[in-house]
Design a protein around this nucleic acid. Structure first.
Length: 255
DNA sequence: AATGTCTGCAACCGCAGGTCA
DNA sequence: TTGACCTGCGGTTGCAGACAT
């Protein structure tokens, strides 16, 4: 392969060495005073013999106050596995679902721990079958990861809408302000989405801390499921009771 | 104890996309 | 519109410590 060390194509001011405590202190102090950003200015203003990118990386991966120390927990590992199954090597997106963990940390953890455990010949269909079968059997576990399980096959990005049902009329209302008349017969909140990262991951952010009724979580892609016909996209419905108990606020903050 | 190999992870690179003059 | 610059991302490298021989 061979890559050109940054110091050779720039100057002696940059070095590839472990950061010292003194350098960390200078960098952290500067960022506390001036905030993040303008990374290129940091070496000039602090005298650090590091490039701006290196300063950014050190801050993002090590010095930030919200970095979580310690080993990856079983729950975190489980979520990493599921999100990786869904998103592939989108480390920053995966890290965004794991508070306090960095993309670099997750990438390293994956490469050194998880990748070698996974059989290489598992087809996407097999993965999907496994994931979907677990939806119905793991009703008691974290619902946010249930959703990830149920949607483990990458699809062409295409977001339709997100919305909520009007508890008085039962009409489904999309949060883009448009009425979704086609969904009038749907009980409970319903969300249509596919795998455009932002929308889907915002959905994962949904607060499931309310009353648990996740047996009613259905993969509406299955024509045998009641509620609506398959549209080719993944949809999920909660029972009216769950929806009402949650104050019909299911997706308000995320769509 | 000395040496070789493996492993985890910090640090770096190249590239793509966004911003702005 | 364009080009320079900046930022963030994923892939890769190399070091240090752990472990095996």
């Amino acid at each position: 392969m061979g890559r050109t060390p940054s110091r050779s194509n720039n100057n002696e001011a940059q070095k590839r060495e472990a950061w010292t405590a003194h350098e960390d202190k200078i960098l952290a102090s500067y960022i506390r005073s001036h905030g993040e950003g303008k990374w290129q200015n940091i070496p000039k203003r602090t005298g650090l013999r590091r490039c701006g990118k290196s300063c950014r990386l050190r801050w993002m991966n090590y010095l930030r106050p919200d970095i979580k120390r310690g080993n990856i927990t079983e729950d975190e590992e489980d979520l990493i596995l599921r999100l990786h199954n869904l998103l592939g090597n989108r480390w920053s997106l995966i890290a965004g679902r794991l508070p306090g963990r960095t993309d670099n940390e997750i990438k390293n953890y994956w490469n050194s721990n998880l990748a070698k455990r996974r059989p290489k010949d598992t087809s996407q269909n097999e993965k999907r079958e496994i994931a979907e079968s677990r939806v119905s059997h793991e009703a008691t576990e974290s619902p946010s990861t249930q959703v990830a399980l149920a949607t483990s096959t990458p699809m062409e990005p295409r977001t339709e809408y997100c919305g909520d049902s009007d508890v008085a009329t039962g009409e489904f209302v999309a949060f883009d302000g448009q009425s979704a008349s086609a969904e009038e017969n749907v009980d409970g909140a319903l969300i249509d989405f596919d795998f455009k990262d932002v929308d889907f991951l915002e959905f994962l952010d949904f607060d499931f801390s309310g009353p648990a009724d996740f047996d009613m979580l259905m993969n509406m892609d299955d024509p045998k499921q009641e509620g609506r016909q398959s549209t080719g996209s993944q949809s999920f419905s909660f029972s009216p009771e769950t929806n009402a108990a949650r104050g019909n606020q299911n997706f308000t903050h995320y769509c």
